[in-house]
Design a protein around this nucleic acid. Structure first.
Lengths: 187, 187
DNA sequence: GTCACCATGTAAATAGTTACATGATTTG
DNA sequence: CAAATCATGTAACTATTTACATGGTGAC
């Protein structure tokens, strides 16, 4: 139920074609709700059928032709209604935590390397978010209307901060564990 | 690809029936990889077919009868191999962030209430994790073999801490926004 | 013996991923 | 015009969720 509303939000900010949406998802909304271009095309078709969006009139609507969509009033209403809906909080569902837990039972294989790889990735994601924050939300110029967008970005920053700290901590703990093993092996 | 390995891990810790697994998922592994009993039954069937687990011999294997499974050597090997595998880090994919982002475009409906509800839920989840930590990982008694399990739990604690802080912060920001609106309205 | 609950399962729908097909436009 | 890239789309598969079906066991 989330993808169509993600698309409506993106289209309200700026009418776009399917591929443009896919690219913008990579840059902003996709940070917390990713989608492939196939998902997006399928969903655009459904939204058009349901009368929530429409294709902007263009020359010939053919296969290789760009097709731009805009949100209709019904679409805006649907999004407004959805905003006050409710979900259960999502549990994390991260395979890395699962691998760690499995490692507690069958032993850590090349897991440390994977943790370091993730640490690097999360660090650069964090740097990217901070750059966006500096660019789009400079201190003392945070207008009322942007506070929600800023809150979402702070969510991303908080999450990446958590991951980098946790990964660094966990790598340290693993390192100590290996040192203990080494000591035992040498005795 | 994660669910079968979650099940193998749980079964290695203790041979169980499908429903027992479903219940144990609710309490430990399910905190970061949830699954319904239907998913678990189906996956148990596949794992048995693939020769990674087997049903413990019991009286009559009938419909309403409990059926316990244990992991075979091939299953342990498969899990060991999987531990050193690799995934891309999961982006968050949380509808709440999406609603917030949508609210930046069509206005915040009853969203504040939803944020408060989530804050409560995350607070009690955090309290639960901390209770588990005190019970299972008392200071100075943290054996080498439990360090990985403790790391996973600290992951949960870190995430819940992030959410409670972010939600509290965001509610404050929303409150200020509303006060501004109030002031404007009164002028 | 019936009601509540334990236990296993089937079926159908929705969501998401991966691989590939096809036409249009731009660039050398 | 050939190659690269833009753009839309189909198909098949895997994963997840939701609703329901069926039998077994123990408490009253």
């Amino acid at each position: 139920m989330s993808l169509p509303h993600a698309i409506l939000t993106a289209l309200l900010e700026k009418p776009s074609s399917g591929l443009e949406l896919a690219r913008r998802f990579d840059k902003s909304i996709g940070y917390f709700w990713s989608a492939t271009h196939q998902q997006i095309y399928r969903e655009l078709g459904k939204l058009e059928q349901d009368g929530l969006i429409r294709a902007l009139p263009a020359g010939a609507p053919a296969r290789g032709q760009k097709k731009e969509y805009e949100v209709l009033p019904a679409g805006r209403d649907a999004l407004t209604a959805w905003v006050s809906g409710s979900d259960a909080p999502r549990p994390v569902r991260d395979p890395l935590l699962l691998r760690l837990r499995a490692a507690a039972v069958v032993g850590t294989g090349g897991l440390e390397e994977e943790l370091r790889r993730h640490l690097d990735l999360h660090r650069s994601q964090l740097a990217e978010y901070r750059a966006i924050e500096e660019r789009d939300f400079p201190p003392e110029r945070d207008g009322e209307e942007d506070r929600l967008r800023h809150a979402v970005l702070r969510g991303g920053i908080g999450l990446e901060t958590f991951w980098t700290e946790w990964l660094a901590e966990t790598l340290t703990a693993l390192g100590e564990r290996n040192e203990e093993k080494e000591r035992k092996r040498r005795q």
